[in-house]
Amino acid sequence: MTPLLSVRDLSVTFDVRRPGSWPWTPPRKLHAVSEVSFDIAPGECLGIVGESGSGKSTIARAVVGTLPSSGGHIMFEGSDLANMDPRQRRVHRRDVQMIFQDPLAALNPRMTVGEIIAEPLITHEPGTPRKEVKKRVGELMERVGLLPNLINRYPHEFSGGQCQRIGIARALILKPKLIICDEPVSALDVSVQAQVINLLMELRRDMGLSMIFIAHDLSVVKHISDRVLVLYLGRVMETAEARKLTTLPEHPYSQALIASVPIPDPVLEKARPRPILEGELPSPLSPPSGCVFRTRCPKARSSCAQEVPALQDIGGRHFVACPYHEAEQVLAVNG
């Protein structure tokens, strides 16, 4: 099956100027994302996990097209994002929609809910009669669990979970093929998180959506994703089926990440061994040579500094970027 979205060796760099430097001094390069590749089949959900600053949101923005990539290719339905003509770009903008972390910040405070949800529709189908727009907005509000009679309310009159539902409705009104969820539940209460995630799963099943689900909470990602991609300092560490990655991770970073998810049972939680990661995420301005994870890796050897470990296929669509990988049983994340 041809993938809906195919990302090959994607790199995104930012120019960083030292404050007060001369305008002609070449700026330093910040490598937010380096050589990331993945595919998403129609209807598939890819989870992306990683610490803050690992480049998760950068990937999302590059795929949506709001950030230019500095290397590699993003192919959407077979056409490269970098050399699309305006008409193709318009189609791409219709088919890829995004849901944001802070639900309230993603809604214009001066617009009513109806106007917010209808905006993509009005932008892409300007001729739609008012009545039709209103009808579709109403249907969609009902679909995401909002009362349609709240159409004239303003975002500040809603709770965080409701605001996120508004954001989801806006993302869905054009019937997109791919939805990118950038930490859609991180800012919500746990109980509301569950509702929103269940809503997303339900919508995905009913509408056959593909999804990129970004989070730093592995238990959430495991619940919703088919495959999971573990990111560290802009590089892929490991990618595998969600169930496999959360129970039998191979890469030392994935193991540490999964071990850091608390188990809601004090006895088990105390008893389990946990490889705690020392230190901080290194600066992406001067990443470590060789394997970027070696400065914090419990299994690091001197050879790790020599060259960047390639992603190796260990069977069953499971890829690991560590030559010394070994499966380690980690206590299953709850859920």
């Binding site: 709001t66 770009r89 910040a105 993603a106 809604l107 932008t123």
Partner: peptide
Amino acid sequence: NKEFVEVAVATGVHPLK
């Protein structure tokens, strides 16, 4: 830099709008 502007850009709303 607020997210609602980013949404509008991603949706393809014209800069003037």
